[in-house]
Design a protein around this nucleic acid. Structure first.
Lengths: 188, 188
DNA sequence: ACGTTGATTGCAGAATCTGTAATCACTACT
DNA sequence: AGTAGTGATTACAGATTCTGCAATCAACGT
């Protein structure tokens, strides 16, 4: 570890969220983010592949964890239940960061360029889930379709979780969304 | 119409596909595309919002047509059938462009940056379908979930259509994919 | 002939992102 | 203490993407 004050990535993320909120995403330069964090533009790119990535910290690790959790779920569970338990397993982490998640969502909603990245991440999550489901023995096209609806249900649950005035847990909304999914699927 | 040779966008697209295939997406500059098309870099940006968009011609119109077709489908049809008929309606257009679609797919598969844009387009299609389904009276979350699985089924059908050695029509693969969807949904 | 229209072009410039090498602060070893 | 090694940060140059603005060009109508 160097002598520089730790938490470099966190400071860059914090600075980025502040500036994006103040002036908007396009009107903020990477150099400005770095300066507010007490660093240089080049250092920013040492930590994030591009300007958008600063708003998706730990996303790749999250995807990897979901993949492993789906793979490791009890073999007796149905594919959909395996995904639900995988989602629910780490949902506390989000419950403790509701406010930060809300600010992040406002930024994503305000800038199409950021939503594009979010959608790419969602698609990557779907592919990872499909891969894990196949590892459980599920065959295509069931794996692909199940993964797709799972991601859709997750997004639905996340949206309701953020909009919920009663502050229900993400786990609660996940279970509700998957219940809705079962109900809707019966109409197909 | 100006005096310049027509088909400017088509020429730019053709040049872009050629160069992307020859040298790869990243190693091709917009200036090179424009030069091969007999135009200038600035003209490229008069026709396409950014470098990626050149590979997604008419995508916005396609989405708009699907939205209208879903909205206009017979009210007696189930939501899923409405989407299927909307997809099938214009599928001949793709059947006549199989080879071009194949080259395009190879490019998308080879470059993550392009897949990201494709995923954004798919998400936009899903939102448009969800909107159309709500206009048909379907309520959330059914509209959102149905739209998501529809897009997934469409992608599945498109993938099989391109991989099919027997050259079945896209319409055939669409019906098969939606049939798989019905089957899979029963296991949820 | 003349003005209008729409597409194309030239040019300047900001911003993103990369490659390369140097610098810095700390650690470990002698 | 002194010295080499390590990893993070920095400086700098440069290619590329994308935008704004004004000028040019070729048709078309009157």
């Amino acid at each position: 570890m160097g002598r520089w004050p730790g938490g470099t990535q966190e400071r860059l993320q914090e600075a980025a969220i502040e500036l994006f909120t103040e002036r908007g995403y396009e009107r903020t330069t990477v150099a400005e983010i770095a300066t507010r964090a007490g660093l240089t533009e080049r250092t920013f790119y040492n930590h994030f592949a591009d300007k958008r990535e600063v708003l998706f910290p730990g996303q790749d690790r999250f995807i990897a964890e979901i993949r492993e959790a789906v793979t490791a779920a009890p073999p007796k569970q149905s594919p959909l239940d395996a995904v639900l338990t995988a989602f629910t397993a780490g949902s506390n982490w989000f419950d403790q960061r509701r406010k930060a998640a809300q600010r992040r969502r406002n930024l994503l909603d305000a800038h199409a360029e950021l939503r594009e990245r979010e959608r790419a991440k969602a698609a990557a999550l779907g592919e990872a889930i499909a891969c894990a489901l196949r590892a459980r023995g599920l065959s295509d096209p069931a794996a692909t379709l199940t993964a797709a609806v799972s991601v859709a249900a997750h997004q639905l649950a996340a949206a309701r979780w953020l909009a919920d005035p009663r502050r229900g847990t993400l786990g609660h909304h996940l279970r509700a969304a998957f219940e809705d999914l079962h109900h809707t699927a019966r109409t197909w």
